[in-house]
Design a protein around this nucleic acid. Structure first.
Lengths: 142, 142
DNA sequence: ATAAATACTTGCTTTAGGCAAGTATTTTGA
DNA sequence: TCAAAATACTTGCCTAAAGCAAGTATTTAT
C-alpha cells in the first residue's frame, strides 16, 4: 500500500480534526455535552427513536445513555413515551423547548462555519462543497 | 450567507467525524489517551517543545497537562530537561522508548487508514488525496 | 529591591463514560 | 402453557479525563 498516500490522508485528518474542533466549539459553550447534543440531533431527525437504537448509533454505554436521557427528560428537553405494545420500550422525541434549544445550537454551529468560510468567494465555497462530496462518495462507495 | 452551503459543510463534518473516529480507534486500544498521544506527536515533531506551548496547541488545561507529562516522564516515554537559561522552563522530547511506542501507534493508525481505502483503486486513492489537498488549501488560504 | 509576570505544580472537584448486576416485560421452546 | 431465555431499560459502583484555583519557583520590569 502506497505509504505517502496514507501519510497524506493522516495529515489531512489531523488538519480536519482541528477544523471540526473549531466548529464544535459552540457545543462546549452550551450546558450540554457533545453526546447529549448528539442525542438531541437523533431525537430531532428520528422522533420516536429508542435508547436501544441510540446505543447503536452513538456507540455509548447503555447505562450512561439511560442517565443521560433521564437528565434531558428532567430538563424537559426530551419527551419519553412508553410504548403501548411493548412496555419495555420508550419512544424519544424533542419537546418544544428541546427543539428551540437544538435550533439555537444549530444556529451557533452555522455561525462558526460561516466564520470559517467568510473569506472565500461564492465560487470557492461551492468548490469546497464539491470537494467534500467527492470525498464522501469515495469513502462510502461500494 | 448561502444556507445550503453551510448545511452541506455541516453534513460533511458529521460524516468525517465518524471517519476520524474509526481511524483513531487504534489509540483507544493503547494504554494512552488521545491527548497523551497528541503530546507524543508534538514532542516527536517539535522536540524541545514546552508545556506552555502545548497548552496553546492542544487547548488543554495546564494543570492537567502537567500531570499528563509527569505520567509520560514516569513511564520513560518523554524526557524533560530543565532549561539552563530559564529554570522555569522544561524542554520536552521523546525518549527512545517513546519513539518506538509512537512509531508503533503510527503503524496501527496507518493500518486503519489502509483498511478505510482498501476497496479503492490506485487512481481513486490519488483522487482522494487531491480532494483533501483542495479542501486544506481552501480553508487555509489567505 | 520589590512588584508583577511567567512556567509549572498540586489539591480539589466535576464530568464523561464504562461495567455489571438488577428489574420489568416479552418471546421462545419443551 | 409455562419456565427459561432474551430484550429494554435502570441503578450502583467505579475509573479516567479534564478543569479550576491556589501555590511555588524563577525571571522580568519598575
Amino acid at each position: 500500500m502506497a505509504k505517502e498516500v496514507i501519510e497524506k490522508i493522516r495529515e489531512f485528518n489531523r488538519f480536519y480534526t482541528a477544523v471540526i474542533g473549531v466548529t464544535n466549539n459552540h457545543i462546549l459553550q452550551s450546558d450540554y455535552s457533545l453526546t447529549e447534543v448528539r442525542v438531541m440531533y437523533e431525537a430531532y431527525y428520528s422522533p420516536g427513536i429508542t435508547a436501544r437504537q441510540l446505543t447503536g448509533i452513538l456507540q455509548v454505554d447503555e447505562g450512561y445513555l439511560s442517565r443521560l436521557i433521564a437528565k434531558l427528560v428532567k430538563h424537559k428537553i426530551v419527551l419519553k413515551k412508553q410504548s403501548k405494545e411493548d412496555k419495555r420500550i420508550y419512544a424519544l422525541e424533542l419537546s418544544e423547548k428541546g427543539k428551540q434549544l437544538f435550533s439555537e445550537l444549530n444556529r451557533r454551529s452555522s455561525e462558526a462555519i460561516a466564520t470559517l468560510i467568510e473569506h472565500l468567494t461564492t465560487e470557492e465555497r461551492l468548490e469546497l462543497v464539491r470537494l467534500q462530496n467527492g470525498i464522501k462518495n469515495l469513502l462510502t462507495k461500494k
